[in-house]
Nucleic acid binder design. Structure first.
Length: 331
DNA sequence: AACTTCCTCAACCGCCAGGCT
DNA sequence: CAGCCTGGCGGTTGAGGAAGT
């Protein structure tokens, strides 16, 4: 039927990923970095196509991902960005650090779309539906369900004010009727808008944390000591967020957004007894995993008898340097 | 408790754009 | 410039869990 599959699917596994597969992929990418995805499954000993590996990594395994529901502010940003960009989920996602296009797309289709419809707003055009007034009047329960967001949307002018100086104590101003005025905006203008730091976003909306965030990798498992700098994270964490971090007994940290950064240090606080000096490192709080990781990394051959980390890797453009490998504490 | 329906979201599919030869 | 390869994107699907009957 026309197009050839992206790869030879004979014998390739499909469907949900197992923990073991995840571990193989994680260990491989942490060791070798991201390069030719087509080669990854073979080299990592996975019976998956490269595309599947890439998707799994970018949508689920990446350490810098936020998990859990979008915060109200993120949701508002999505709505506003969607009004400007349409279904360009990757563009929208690029404005929401730690969120993937897939996640945003899903959230849009399952939550925001319905919410907008019930508010009498066409989720495609972002304009009021013809029978909007009737609908909104007939939805008192829904109003109660999402009171904070909708109150704001009804009361405030309609645009994420990217330019205004963010006041951590003040809910950002967002409105919903921007489509007509903003649809024609140049995309580069949109992209030029300030990027909000993941933590900052949450601080703005939820005083530091979205309570239903459930990172796939716990924050205290992937921690980078955050040098007291003038970064947006630290500068914006003036009051509430800092307190919350302290309350949680977490150190200042940043999600590891660039694992190629050779200065990366990972602090596993769950093992304070072992690693109290921040030098002990374990990405995942799982001794079994670590031992398996070591096994995976140290073994010359995978279960299929393929060379896992043979010299041919040097042909690829992206290799993790020794220092990077050490930084991950894998060797 | 058993069954059905609804909902969510991880994963897949096919297409497209860009880089390379 | 054409053809190939790869990564990325957006639409769609379907398994599994939640909610309803």
């Amino acid at each position: 039927m026309g197009r050839q599959p992206c790869c030879d699917k004979v014998g390739l596994k499909k469907g949900p990923w197992t923990a073991e597969e995840d571990k193989k992929l994680i260990s491989f990418i942490l060791t070798n970095g991201q390069y030719c995805w087509r080669a990854v499954p073979k080299l990592a000993g996975l019976l998956r196509c490269g595309k599947s590996c890439r998707l799994r990594w970018t949508n689920y395994l990446r350490p810098d991902l936020k998990r859990g529901l979008l915060s109200e502010y993120e949701e508002k940003m999505v709505i506003d960005l969607h009004a400007q960009l349409g279904n360009r989920w990757s563009k929208i996602a690029s404005h929401l650090p730690g969120r993937t296009d897939n996640e945003i797309k899903n959230h849009w289709n399952t939550h925001i779309k319905k919410k907008l419809k019930k508010m009498g707003i066409d989720p495609i055009t972002h304009k009021p539906l013809p029978n909007a007034t009737e609908q909104t009047q007939n939805q008192p329960k829904q109003q109660q369900l999402h009171q904070p967001l909708e109150e704001e949307q009804n009361q405030q002018p309609l645009q994420v004010d990217f330019d205004h100086k963010v006041d951590p104590n003040k809910e950002p101003e967002i409105s919903l009727e921007s489509s007509t005025t903003t649809e024609a905006r140049e995309e580069d203008q949109i992209i030029a808008t300030p990027q909000f730091d993941t933590m900052e976003l949450n601080q703005l909306v939820n005083n530091g944390f979205c309570t239903d965030e459930v990172p796939i990798i716990e924050p205290n498992e992937i921690l980078m000591p955050c040098a007291p700098s003038s970064s947006s994270t630290s500068s914006s964490s003036s009051s509430n967020s800092t307190n919350i971090l302290q309350d949680l007994q977490l150190p200042d940290f940043e999600w590891c957004c660039d694992y190629s950064d050779s200065s990366l240090i990972i602090n596993n606080n769950n093992h304070e007894d072992k690693n109290s000096n921040n030098s002990g490192m374990a990405l995942w709080d799982d001794d079994d995993f670590i031992s398996k990781l070591n096994w995976l990394i140290n073994e010359d051959d995978d279960c299929d008898g393929n060379q896992v980390f043979d010299g041919s890797l040097t042909q690829f453009s992206r290799m993790v340097t020794d220092s990077e490998s050490w930084a991950f504490g894998l060797f």
